[in-house]
Amino acid sequence: MTLSRRRFLTISAAASVALPAQAQATEPAIWHGRALGADVSLRVEGLAPAASARLWRRVARVLEEVEARFSLFRRSELVRLNETGILAHPSADMRALIALSGQLNTATGGAFDPSVQVIWQALSEARDPSKARQLVGWQKVEIDADRIRLAPGAALTFNGIAQGFAADQIAALMRQEGLGNVLIDAGEVAALGHGAGGHPWRAGIAGPDGALLAERPLANRALATSSPAATRVGPDRAAHILHPDGRAPLWQTVSVSAPTAALADGLSTAFCLMKDHEIMQALAAFPGTRLEYLG
């Protein structure tokens, strides 16, 4: 697998302190895969080699389930909702992500809004996004216990939160397996326990060009980093993190740590569009969250 420079720096920065200079008696088990358009890597301390093949199969199944819910590039639950405007009997995962999206939308004053997918589509096709903005608004999404309904022409994307959700799902699997020292990088980073020698895992914060900006110790927490310019949309190369009202991002790179990767992911996405005092207010709504980098 070929890793981008941005992803390589994140992973290598995490590993550099986790492994002491001297050789280890037991090497960590390492797995690489891919989900939701991102490279995924796991580093597990204390896993017997004979158990690794079975664990990797379970990890692959977890990621397959996440793709089946939230991918925009296959016949997922999300695609069916966007195509038909209604999703009956949504899965527990879909309900969980919808609920968290609503909390984030409220706490960020609307900056986090999965309904911006129609704006992204307009920009990618070089269309005027002004008409698409009229369809945007989380408050227009009808959410019931057994149904989700969109307004005609509306569409959702969970690209600002689903990678974090994937990391959380893998973390839950690791706990079920009794594995307490694991580093998960699914586009956003979740760290369980510690690395080799009892040292905290360390995660790198990379800018849009892949340059390493900072490192943070991480133990039983998650870290998410968002850079609007890391991905560009359409022939006009618009930043991929979009505000519903069209305002431009205010920050080049934002990194947030939180108890869960989905929460860190959603907050780091929204904070790219928010003023610093608004960011502090939003953090107060979610105990245990921290702003790790803003620049």
Rank of each mutant, 00 (worst) to 15 (best):
I30T: 11
L42N: 06
A13V: 04
R34H: 13
G37Q: 14
R34G: 08
R34D: 09
E45H: 03
R34E: 15
G37I: 09
H32M: 09
A50T: 11
I11F: 10
F8S: 13
V17A: 14
A25N: 10
S16R: 15
R34I: 01
L36C: 07
A13R: 11
A50D: 11
S41F: 06
S16A: 15
G37W: 14
A18P: 05
L36F: 08
L42Y: 03
G33Y: 01
I30D: 07
A35C: 15
L42R: 13
P49T: 02
A23Y: 06
A25S: 09
F8W: 11
R43I: 09
A48S: 10
S12I: 10
A35F: 04
E27R: 14
I30C: 14
A29I: 01
V44P: 01
R43H: 13
H32P: 00
P20A: 04
Q22M: 09
A15Y: 03
A51W: 00
Q24N: 05
L42T: 04
W31T: 06
L42W: 02
P49G: 05
H32G: 03
A18Y: 05
D39P: 12
A38H: 15
R34T: 09
T26P: 00
Q24Y: 00
L19V: 10
A50E: 14
T10P: 01
A50M: 08
A51R: 14
A23G: 08
L42F: 08
L19H: 09
E45F: 01
V44H: 01
A29W: 07
P20R: 09
S12G: 01
G37S: 11
F8T: 07
L36A: 06
L9G: 15
A25R: 13
P49Q: 03
T10M: 14
A51F: 02
P28K: 05
P49I: 04
A23Q: 10
A23E: 12
I11G: 02
V40R: 08
S41K: 08
L9A: 09
S12C: 06
A25Q: 09
A15I: 02
F8Q: 15
L36W: 11
G37N: 11
P20I: 07
T10Q: 15
L47W: 00
A35S: 15
A48Q: 10
F8L: 15
